[in-house]
Design a protein around this nucleic acid. Structure first.
Length: 562
DNA sequence: GAAGACGGCGCC
DNA sequence: AAAGGGCGCCGTCTTC
């Protein structure tokens, strides 16, 4: 049996499929079968399924109990390849890719829609435009050639293959759901917010609002920033906003209850009773994971705000009876990634140990002040512009010149309007936002774009402010995005390691993963996570001494992991 | 009444 | 001590 097969779902639930030859085109005749699910189930020897879109095909297979080892997601690869080619805005559907290949009019992409609570999500929507299998294969074969034209074809192939694996992980996590105890969640809400008055207002919020009003000497609505700013002004305190960092140093009796109100109000509105009603069913939090949903390659979720769950609410994440949660958190991922991509000798040396990286850096350069070292590193990665961070950055630059030069170069590229890429080749979108001047982007040749910033009307200070913001973005992009590259490779390896176990991946959040498994599998899962991290370091970044340790915990409740 | 901007804050 | 990067989602306010 050929190791790669292409498959296309037909509108009646059937499939067209064919084995692919070395050129990526069908090597035998195209078969038509009445059931997509049975077509895949009956061919366990296929090493990689090439299909239009994982989100469109795989949930149906999972619902029927069919898993696949590997896939190649044509529309995801199209997105990555277009980005690398500096053509971010162009339609990415298979139909569009085919039209470009045929020099035909290119159809726009169908609009995305947000998840609605309780719906089965976009994953079960009907196919948009049916692309016949021969045409799909033609697009695939052309994509293989386009990989060869990139700066690092081997890395680009790894990127598309790995993000395809990520699509499988995402569909499986979406189908599995995160174990969620609604009764525990309700108990936490009761403790924090008190019982609800008629109309849904929690007692504790009402009490805090009263305290705040009493402190100001008049009725104040703490959920209205404008009202709070006015109240402070009447009390003789000028504030430009009611953000916590701005008001917390003010000496006024309203500050303490106000900050507490904001904390609890947030929990009530974003992760309270109605959230529970909307997103938790049958003991699982239901959301949809979207790999590569951000420009840097980080994932997003569609629905439930599942990557922003407050720590206090994590008490509701509890393993099934007899099962455990293996919670694993990569230690100081971003500076380790910076060491690997910059190949800075000093930083690689400290990142070559499992010990706390910020502590190691502070021992070398910051008189053992870990917090200062951490702020300096984050300042370098985020583009800090003022304060202590700048002085610390100078220290960092002296000790780790290549690492700092790497992010400085990325920042300069951004300020000059050039493209930057992650280690594996994910490319940041050009500065000009969709639809204005310069629209069609800048192909490979990284041309300097004259005076930095936007063409068009010139407002003194405006262009340079934009250029600096752009520099901070590209500076961060190369590190955050390369960390996302690594995380994707790690996830793919971990998924493979869990294939023979009952264990399943149930959560992934940038540098943290949760596996739900029978208690007796927990040691094997823990070992698999460490092996996946090591493997990902080697596969992603090649031959470097940099290590990627995880902090792992085997717990029954997520909140006990930290 | 729907859509979008904005302030604010949770997570990494 | 100062207010950098990436997101999603909420409620309010504004606009059409």
């Amino acid at each position: 049996m050929s190791d790669r097969w292409a498959i296309a779902a037909t509108p009646d639930g059937g499939a067209e499929l064919a084995p692919l030859g070395p050129d990526g085109l069908p090597a035998g005749g195209v078969r038509r079968e009445p059931s997509l699910v049975e077509a895949v189930r009956g061919r366990p020897g296929v090493a990689r399924w090439v299909w239009r879109s994982t989100a469109a095909v795989y949930p149906r297979l999972l619902a029927a109990g069919v898993r696949v080892d590997r896939c190649y997601d044509i529309e995801d690869a199209e997105t990555l390849l277009l980005g690398h080619e500096g053509r971010h805005g162009e339609p990415r559907s298979a139909a569009a890719a085919l039209a470009r290949l045929r020099h035909a009019p290119v159809p726009p992409d169908p609009p995305q829609r947000a998840a609605e609570p309780g719906s089965q999500s976009s994953l079960f929507e009907p196919q948009p435009v049916h692309v016949p299998l021969d045409d799909l294969a033609a697009v695939y074969a052309d994509q293989q050639r386009r990989h060869d034209a990139t700066a690092h074809p081997d890395r680009m192939r790894l990127l598309t293959a790995t993000e395809s694996a990520g699509m499988l992980v995402a569909a499986e996590m979406t189908a599995a759901g995160l174990p969620w105890r609604a009764d525990v969640h309700r108990a936490v809400l009761g403790e924090l917010l008190g019982e609800r008055y008629a109309g849904g207002e929690p007692r504790r919020l009402a009490e805090l609002a009263d305290e705040i009003s009493a402190a100001f000497g008049r009725r104040v609505r703490p959920d209205l920033p404008a009202d709070v700013v006015r109240a402070f002004a009447q009390a003789g305190v000028k504030v430009s906003s009611t953000r916590r960092w701005e008001i917390e140093s003010i000496d006024h009796p309203a500050v303490k209850p106000l900050i507490e109100y904001k904390r609890l109000y947030r929990i009530h509105t974003a992760h309270g009773w109605s959230w529970l009603q909307d997103w938790v069913r049958d003991g699982r939090l239901r959301t949809e994971y979207l790999p590569g949903g951000t420009v840097s390659g980080r994932w997003v979720t569609n629905g439930a705000g599942a990557l922003q769950i407050p720590k206090v609410i994590r008490r509701a994440v509890v393993a099934d009876p007899g099962w455990r949660l293996v919670v694993a958190d990569a230690d100081q991922l971003e500076p380790r990634v910076l060491a690997a991509i910059s190949r800075d000798p000093g930083l690689m040396e400290v990142a070559g140990r499992d010990a706390d990286l910020y502590q190691s850096i502070s021992d070398r350069a910051f008189a053992s002040d870990r917090e200062q070292a951490k702020l300096a590193v984050l300042g370098a990665v985020y583009g800090q512009t003022s304060g202590d961070g700048l002085r610390n950055l100078a220290v960092l630059r002296r000790r780790f010149p290549r690492a700092v030069a790497y992010v400085d170069d990325a920042a300069r590229a951004g300020e000059e309007g050039r493209l930057v890429r992650t280690w594996l080749g994910r490319t940041c979108p050009p500065a000009a936002t969709a639809g204005d001047q310069d629209g069609e982007g800048v192909p490979q040749e990284d041309q300097p774009s004259g005076p930095a910033g936007a063409p068009g009307e010139f407002v003194p200070g405006y262009a340079s402010t934009n250029a600096r913001a752009r520099g901070r973005f590209t500076r961060n992009f190369v590190v955050q995005g390369s960390a996302a590259d690594w995380a994707l490779v790690m996830l793919a390896a971990l998924r493979r390691a869990c294939a023979g176990l009952a264990a399943e991946l149930v959560f992934f959040q940038h540098d943290e993963v949760i596996v739900h498994c029978p208690a007796e599998e927990a040691p094997a899962v823990t070992a698999a996570i460490r092996e996946a991290a090591d493997l990902a370091g080697r596969v992603t970044f090649g031959d470097t001494p940099v290590r990627f340790p995880f902090t792992t915990a085997v717990v029954e409740c997520y909140a006990d992991a930290k």
